[in-house]
Nucleic acid binder design. Structure first.
Length: 149
DNA sequence: GCCAACGTTGGC
DNA sequence: GCCAACGTTGGC
């Protein structure tokens, strides 16, 4: 079993939305690396850190888990969707996504605090220029974080 | 709003 | 296949 960090802008979809919904299809990812993680590597039961980005207080806001394996993202076929991709076809879908289910909302662990732990210095989230919305989390990082959430 | 960093596009 | 231009991300 592996572990992941997934970013969401809370103005778009927040941890409270996930509390309300219980689970969510993670549609709209349009980056190949992030897609590959979801399509090729994420398994049901994998742990997920739910991260708030592009907001007043970025940080980890909750715990979730993968609840469904990747399948084609329907929004790529919908001309009315902001995620529409004219180069995608039903026979040859380009974008895939998993679904995640809430485990629990946590006290917000701010990015500024995450940066202070030496144990987390290797996190992909913290590497300069990192913009990936789905990143793997090492087991040691995951275990350390669980003790602080 | 600024800006660094990175990904994608498209002309050649 | 190169690379300049452009768009996006995301912290501050």
């Amino acid at each position: 079993m592996r572990h992941w960090l997934m970013k969401s802008e809370p103005s778009d979809y927040s941890i409270d939305d996930l509390v309300r919904d219980g689970s969510i299809p993670w549609v709209g990812v349009r980056n190949y690396q992030a897609r590959n993680f979801m399509r090729d590597e994420m398994k049901v039961g994998d742990g997920v850190l739910f991260y708030h980005s592009s907001c007043a207080e970025p940080g980890i806001a909750g715990l979730a888990e993968v609840s469904r394996l990747a399948y084609p993202d329907a929004t790529q076929f919908d001309p009315a969707s902001p995620y529409f991709d004219p180069k995608a076809t039903l026979e040859n879908p380009r974008w895939y996504h998993v679904e995640i289910r809430l485990v629990r909302k946590t006290v917000l662990l701010p990015l500024t605090v995450i940066r202070e732990f030496d144990e987390l210095a290797g996190m992909r989230l913290l590497q300069r220029g990192n913009r990936l919305s789905v990143t793997p989390v090492e087991l040691k990082e995951w275990q350390f974080l669980l003790n602080h959430l």
